[in-house]
């Protein structure tokens, strides 16, 4: 049983409850102990950084300071929200590479009787923990209801794979970890070209037209690939694509009905949990009809593959890079 210090972030209590519920469910099956950072505060998302750097970093660093007090055996902080994950790693990173800055943030923390030594914590995203700590073999062994027949578009968004700090676990542009996880659950993973494209972030509030354009690109690309649903690892992506899909449809006069789920919900489904135990139904674009395909053989797709694979007997294609998590890649080159 591995124990993790968990930084849930605000969304897990409101818009991303399905993420929270499903995570708690599957962590039982996987034998992961989760303990929240005691009295954590909001990480400030992208907003506080926009207004004033020092208080923004101090806000983040309070969480790091609190978490580092809870280190007991494991010093790994697990984050579920990608913005929280980014902010925590970014603060830790910048405090380490810019010692002057690190001192300044600690001076602020001092006012509250706290301090944080950069590097004291290992900050990981749940996906990283699942693929690299727990391992796909173990996950595969827990699958009771393979997700056969379900065509899934894996959508990671920006802040899990980027920026590409040395400690980041995946490729910044074409990460394979989520694909491989979903494949291990038995799902058919479509080659989703926009897997790390932007969902629009807070643009739904600031410049809705900009956001609608980005949401449209993503949903359309998934639809072009004949995906039954998209999964994400980020509350903001889920909210933008799910809650604003209707408004986007209205804006572009389109009629997409693409369900947007958290990847943990699909893991739970494969582990044999009932949909009701995984927060299904909390999504605005219902996943019901998509899930009814579970267990049925998905029809052959024809659209995207056409351009990419030349007919036999013509000029050979270069071999694609081998598909393996970046952690394995690093080991292979050592």
């Amino acid at each position: 049983m591995s124990d993790y210090i968990f930084y849930p972030g605000c969304a897990m209590e409101s818009s991303a409850r399905a993420y929270d519920i499903s995570l708690k469910a599957i962590s039982k099956t996987l034998g992961i102990g989760i303990k929240d950072v005691d009295d954590w505060n909001c990480c400030g998302a992208t907003e506080y950084l926009s207004i004033s750097a020092t208080p923004a970093y101090a806000l983040i660093a309070r969480n790091l300071a609190l978490a580092s007090r809870q280190v007991n055996g494991s010093n790994t902080v697990m984050a579920s929200c990608s913005a929280c994950y980014l902010n925590l790693t970014k603060a830790d990173h910048n405090m380490a590479v810019d010692p002057k800055f690190g001192i300044k943030i600690n001076q602020a923390l001092e006012a509250g009787g706290l301090s944080y030594q950069p590097g004291a914590l290992e900050i990981k995203h749940i996906l990283d923990i699942m693929v690299n700590d727990i391992g796909l073999e173990k996950i595969k062994s827990k699958v009771k209801r393979p997700l056969e027949g379900l065509r899934v578009a894996p959508y990671l968004g920006c802040m899990v794979p980027r920026p590409d700090y040395a400690s980041r676990f995946s490729d910044a542009e074409q990460p394979v970890e989520l694909d491989m996880l979903l494949e291990s659950l038995g799902a058919e993973v479509v080659d989703f070209p926009l897997r790390t494209a932007c969902c629009g972030g807070h643009m739904t509030q600031i410049s809705p037209d900009t956001a609608f354009d980005l949401i449209n690109r993503l949903v359309k690309a998934a639809d072009d690939q004949q995906a039954d649903l998209m999964v994400t690892a980020c509350p903001m992506c889920q909210m933008n694509l799910d809650a604003f899909q209707g408004e986007m449809n209205h804006h572009f006069k389109t009629n997409f009905k693409m369900p947007i789920l958290f990847f943990t919900q699909l893991v739970g489904l494969a582990f044999g949990y009932e949909a009701s135990e995984l927060g299904f139904g909390l999504e605005l674009v219902s996943a019901k009809s998509a899930l009814s395909k579970l267990g049925m053989k998905a029809p052959e797709s024809d659209s995207a593959a056409k351009v990419k694979k030349p007919p036999k007997g013509e000029l050979p294609m270069p071999a694609p890079l081998p598909k393996m998590p970046r952690s394995a890649e690093k080991e292979a080159t050592q």
Partner: peptide, 20 residues
């Protein structure tokens, strides 16, 4: 050139390298 994943070599058929 496959390392520059945003240029699609090895993924997109009609992307060629200079030697090709």
């Amino acid at each position: 050139a496959r390392k520059v994943s945003n240029y699609g070599y090895g993924r997109l058929a009609n992307v060629f390298t200079s030697l090709e």
